[in-house]
């Protein structure tokens, strides 16, 4: 059987994550406010838009939640695509984001 090195779970993603943080932090002006402003501009009717930097402030990882009537009739994938499209410039600079979309009335 393939044997994993000790602590691989802890080591590899964390290392990659730290590497990514340090490499993007320097030239990445992405922050919560920037993402929030972009999303509010795109979805003015949204009931809720929340953005949380989960990378400890280095701007590489975010939790984003959007609840808006604009999503009516769209599949979850299309809802996510719409958000990604809105954050096109930011997406190239960050490592990733957790996205939650909901349809509001």
């Amino acid at each position: 059987m393939f044997k994993l090195p000790k602590n691989w779970l802890l080591r590899s993603p964390l290392q990659a994550y730290i590497r990514n943080c340090s490499s993007t932090a320097a030239n990445s002006p992405v922050n919560e406010q920037l993402i929030l402003d972009k999303l509010r501009g795109k979805f003015p009717k949204a009931a809720t838009i929340s953005v949380e930097d989960t990378s400890g402030g280095c701007g590489a990882m975010f939790n984003v939640s959007v609840e808006t009537p604009d999503f009516q009739g769209l599949s979850v994938m299309k809802q996510h695509k719409l958000v990604y499209e809105t954050l096109k410039d930011e997406m190239t600079k960050i490592h990733g984001l957790h996205l939650q979309t909901r349809i509001s009335k």
């Binding site: 979850v76 994938m77 996510h80 990604y84 997406m91 990733g96 957790h98 939650q100």
Partner: peptide, 24 residues
Amino acid sequence: SNWPTIPQIYINGEFVGGCDIMLQ
């Protein structure tokens, strides 16, 4: 896929989504 992040999952040749959608 016109999708900005990795991972990406395909089922039956069709793009399904990324991590969040899989989890959902």
